[in-house]
Amino acid sequence: MLSDTERRELEEAVKHYPDKRGAAIDALLTIQRRRGWISDDSLLEIAQFLEITVEELDSVATFYNLVFRKPVGRHVAFMCDSISCWIKGCERVQEQIKKLYDVELGQTTSDGRLTLLPIACLGQCGRAPAMMIDQDVHGDVTPDTIEQIVEKYK
């Protein structure tokens, strides 16, 4: 069941579009912000709210990569793997994270703390290599500074 707050947020989003389904992405992201990911149940609730079928919504949801259809950890670390960061050694940072937290790209640490995902260029190429944890961007990351950064997210 959508909570009252969730429903209110969705109703707000829908107002921006002449057609309810225009708010599909807003709705998915809104619910995901609150619940961490989009479960089948969440999907159904949103679909009902938007008056479309689950198939229709999931067809959209699975197209995008920021909609999580699987559970994620308490924090999500997005490692930019695009060219500028690659030149500046993002692969080495990734390896360091793997070593420190025993987690591969696309996985969540066993304590459920951190999910590690690749992401396309974060628009921080001037400060490459860059990463984003939850909504915070970190630039000029090196294998030496990474632990200090990640440790802020418990």
Binding site: G22, F63, A120
Partner: peptide, 18 residues
């Protein structure tokens, strides 16, 4: 919600339509 192709203007229009 991510996807480079959304930057292509007609794909963007589809994306805006949900």
């Amino acid at each position: 919600a991510g996807r480079y192709i959304c930057g292509e203007e007609t794909a963007l229009i589809n994306a805006l339509e949900g």
